[in-house]
Design a protein around this nucleic acid. Structure first.
Length: 173
DNA sequence: CCCTAGCGGTGCT
DNA sequence: AGCACCGCTAGGG
């Protein structure tokens, strides 16, 4: 019987001015971000002894980037992102989100068109909702076509707060 | 304003 | 294979 590698995630806390976020790392990079108080049922923590130097470096980068992003600024250098938990389509959407700079926004239908899936706006919304790395993968910059907020799995108050800090709150609210 | 039909991807049976 | 979700959209009353 051959060994089977189950995706192992190391969870670490990141203190920011907005509270303590929980960040998850696979062996290939940052793979999860949860808002303060929204940790839900995470896998068991890994012991501190198994935290490698590389992991510490990633976490330092991610924490700094997260803090800048929360302030509405460019995140700067990121650790490698592990988006492989998603389907091909979801990964395409998440990659597209990374192209949206702070201070600008897009909408679900537009992203669908960019991906050559003009009628898949609804699927784009679903993929945004499945984004495992909110804030750093800026799904909050995707609005509905009528400039309304659309949804946000982390809670619409977060979406609104993030957009306001980036100066992107739609006027039609 | 509200309502509806139509849309694509995903996960569970 | 079928089905019920979903962070949607365009069109019409």
């Amino acid at each position: 019987m051959s060994a089977r590698k189950v995706c192992e995630i190391t969870w670490m806390s990141a203190e920011t001015p907005d509270g303590i976020f929980t960040l998850g790392y696979s062996e290939s990079g940052l793979c999860a971000v949860t808002f303060p108080g929204q940790e839900g049922a995470l896998g068991s923590d890994k012991l501190a002894s198994s935290v490698t130097a590389q992991l510490k470096r990633w976490h330092k980068l991610a924490t700094a980037a997260l803090t800048r992003a929360l302030a509405g600024k460019e995140p700067g250098e990121l650790p490698p992102l592990d988006l492989t938990s998603g389907t091909t389509f979801q990964q395409q959407v998440w990659r597209a989100l990374l192209e949206i700079r702070p201070g600008s926004t897009s909408h679900y239908g537009r992203i669908a068109r960019e991906l050559g899936r003009a009628t898949a706006c609804r699927a784009v919304g679903a993929a945004c909702g499945a984004n495992p790395i909110p804030v750093l993968v800026p799904c909050h910059r995707v609005l509905a076509a009528d400039q309304k907020l659309g949804g946000f799995s982390g809670g619409l108050d977060w979406k609104e707060r993030l957009l306001r800090r980036e100066g992107s709150l739609p006027s039609v609210l």
